[in-house]
Nucleic acid binder design. Structure first.
Lengths: 330, 330
DNA sequence: CTGAAAGCGCTTACAG
DNA sequence: CTGAAAGCGCTTACAG
């Protein structure tokens, strides 16, 4: 079916070795021989088989990316930069949606191991788990692994995390400086990243609102969940006048809910999101958001992979500063 | 470095053939032999090398996905469903961001051809181009290719398109039924899909507003572009009281712009988006949007690939009906 | 400058 | 039930 190096060799009356040399632009081929082979190569649209090449070269030129759900914007941005950078260096990306079920993560790590990926990127703090650590040890013990917004203590794992803890503490401080009396925190599912944010909130409260009790809620990911949780929070704590949501998307749904409840933002209730996504700027009112530097994290991840792949040293763990982008909602 | 079938064979005092049979769960292996090998396999965390396997089996179990920019939500949704469905059947997805430069598309098609992908998915009508057609003919003439929201007349290409033309005509009709006097159309870059929408708009105008001139604008993709174009449109045509944007994201930026201009939506200006994305529901006011059934298209694409891969017949071109979801902005 | 041979890790008839 | 051999498409010392 496909044209191989042998087919070309036969037509050119040379050996496969010679064709291989031409295909790979190696020296030690006579000028006319080379020309003849080049012509044939072009004529038959010869394309080398990467699997065969990878087998002998012991390199797949593929890297794996694991993400729970590719539809989550924040991580998509990261994947974009990583794919961009790596494909420019001849790598292809195998991107797997793993979902939130740990058993499935192991399967995905195995599957990527079968394909002999040369590096692995884990998008999101959620992968900061013992199950992953163990699976990596078993199936990918020797390739570089990078976690975006997380960390795992293993010899071949490199972590890049945004300083969300201090960032959220600063958000509380911002509410304080705006004269708010009672801030609350609402997050979706518990991930290491969200726990950091929560800790940051608690630190902020104890620092700026020592007399105010902790008001913390957790909700699912759906529109209706977030909406309902926001309503419940304000019914149980009508004194709340500032809400920090664990992600911009939640905050935007919160804005929607507040509007439906007739609350003015930021006068009655100030709102802060996290991620500083594109939508923060578009929303009405525009959304004050903690930029957790996912962009920087991804760029750095891409660079680090390339560095590791070429044998250079890279920090095992990097903490990247976050910063608040103020807009209309505070 | 890695454990091979030969290593296991040596330890078990059997041949590689036998190990292979055990690995693949094939019959004709003695019970104790099988048990012994199984034990070894588990003990050494043996994982077969897919490249080697693929080489002899002539199958990579990989499919390729081309997308201009993985950050565009509409297509991310599609990729999610496709990856989901295919990975459940043992396939991995090579996802490449191609950008909007045609020369780069050819490179990506070549690169996927090298990896012997077994099917290709093109996300977006933008790939409905002669350059792609030619590249496919040269480098991937025999594997199934599916275009989401587009079509190409070639033997191995299958198209799935939403009926955006009639959908947009219906949007014009909706504005008419709401008593609007002067609808306008604003799109970002010209793609086959956007041209269909434009045509639909023109059909709608000629049908419901025979006396109103065509007001059509084109803008870039950036926030500021869309904002500026909306402002320009309303300055040049203050009579506009309904705007159909070619995508929800544009419409949301439009809402933002209108709010800044002090226009009430929908009283002064009604707004309609296209895609019926999650954000249409969240935005304030919530956005009326034409659902172009990208979800259905992706689901169908995934199913069709699987069908084609198992040798079944699939329609060359399918048109899927679109429908308007009315919300507050009209 | 060129080719024969071995080998990458695997599978599958074919013998026994 | 088991193994030797050939082959998937390629690369790379090693001879010449």
């Amino acid at each position: 079916m496909q044209v191989t190096i042998y087919d070309i060799a036969k037509m050119a009356n040379v050996s496969a070795s010679t064709v291989s040399r031409v295909v790979n632009g190696k020296p030690n081929v006579g000028a006319k021989t080379r020309a003849k082979i080049m012509k044939l190569l072009a004529e038959y649209n010869y394309i080398p088989n990467e699997a065969a090449r990878g087998l002998v070269m012991q390199s797949s030129h593929m890297i794996g990316i694991l993400i729970t759900d590719i539809r989550t914007t924040q991580h998509t941005d990261g994947i974009f930069y990583i794919e961009q950078e790596l494909s420019a260096h001849g790598y292809s990306c195998l991107i797997h949606n793993t979902g939130r079920d740990e058993a499935n993560w192991v399967k995905n790590i195995q599957s990527l191991s079968q394909r002999k990926i040369e590096a692995l990127v884990l998008m999101g703090s959620i992968y900061q788990s013992d199950v992953v650590k163990e699976a990596l040890q078993l199936y990918l013990p020797s390739i570089p692994v990078i976690i975006c917004n997380g960390y795992l203590n293993a010899p071949n794992v490199y972590g890049l995390v945004g300083d969300e803890l201090n960032g959220v503490t600063d958000c509380v401080k911002l509410l304080y400086s705006k004269g708010k009396k009672c801030p609350a925190f609402l997050m979706n599912q518990s991930t290491p990243s969200n726990e950091q944010k929560k800790l940051g909130f608690e630190t902020g409260i104890s620092r700026y609102y020592p007399e105010v009790p902790l008001i913390e809620y957790e909700s699912g990911n759906s529109f209706s969940d977030i909406n309902a949780t926001t309503v419940a929070m304000l019914e149980q704590h009508p004194e709340v006048d500032g809400i920090i949501y664990s992600e911009d998307v939640l905050a935007m749904i919160g804005l929607r809910t507040l509007a439906d409840m007739g609350k003015r933002v930021p006068e009655d209730v100030a709102v802060i999101g996290i991620n500083n996504s594109d939508y923060a700027r578009i929303s009405i009112p525009s959304l004050t958001s903690l930029d957790n530097m996912l962009y920087d994290i991804s760029m750095t991840a891409a660079r680090n992979i390339l560095a590791l792949l070429s044998g250079q040293r890279v920090s095992k763990k990097m903490l990247i500063c976050t910063e608040i982008v103020e807009r209309q909602s505070t």
